[in-house]
Design a protein around this nucleic acid. Structure first.
Lengths: 115, 115
DNA sequence: GGGTCATACAACCTTATGGTTGTATCAATG
DNA sequence: CATTGATACAACCATAAGGTTGTATGACCC
């Protein structure tokens, strides 16, 4: 049922999923949460099955989920995976800024005191 | 000097680069900006050449840069690529919140996604 | 139940990716 | 300038990824 169990720890899958332009676009479209796979597939110059595979990749990465609605399955973007990736990038950037801080310290003060 | 030329548009490469655990780890280590490739390579259970390739992938993605220092080349994390990816994720999340807004408008009951 | 719309999945092909080893370049040093 | 240390790059191999077509399941409509 609810797919959000081990979600956030499959960082590999999240980034790999986002590494494809078609999939990123699907994530954007699926934000509306109104289209079935066929409708999504119609927008891309590839087969239905190909798009289906892309959606499957996104689903495994926890970036979208599918919900039955009549004979269709509506694809909907799941915010949790996005946040996980985002937090990771923020962490990287934070550490990097820390490094700049330290370097600036050395240049201007010539001493190594951690504030 | 400044290496940021076409930076932010290689989103595919940025995400693909970050989709590998070894490479993410290298990005973290390279934040210190003090190790050469050989030193980095020593930390991983794979050949020097393999690590070298990983660094090359990160470099092509604009996530790290190499700087000569004597006979070594020091690997240093570049913040620009990280920011680009982060901004993209933020944009996704923002749009998703917009969707929540719209859904809140339709506080009727459980089904019907069409309006 | 038969037809049809929407999705799932298997088999297959081609190219990319992650790893290996081996060889070449390049900079410091004796 | 020969040697050594550090990096670059080519050739190769195994597996994964992105695409195709074809077939099977599932849900609705008559």
């Amino acid at each position: 049922m609810v797919v959000s169990m081990e979600t956030a720890l499959d960082i590999d899958r999240v980034f790999a999923a986002l590494a494809d332009a078609t999939r990123r676009d699907i994530v954007l479209r699926a934000i509306a949460g109104e289209e079935g796979i066929a409708e999504i597939a119609n927008r891309y110059p590839m087969s239905f099955a190909a798009v289906q595979k892309h959606v499957a990749v996104l689903e495994r990465a926890g970036l979208v989920s599918k919900q039955r609605n009549g004979r269709r399955k509506v694809v909907r973007t799941d915010v949790e995976g996005l946040r996980a990736a985002q937090r990771l990038l923020e962490r990287y950037e934070h550490l990097w800024r820390g490094r700049i801080d330290r370097m600036t310290h050395l240049v201007t003060n010539s001493k190594e005191t951690d504030e």
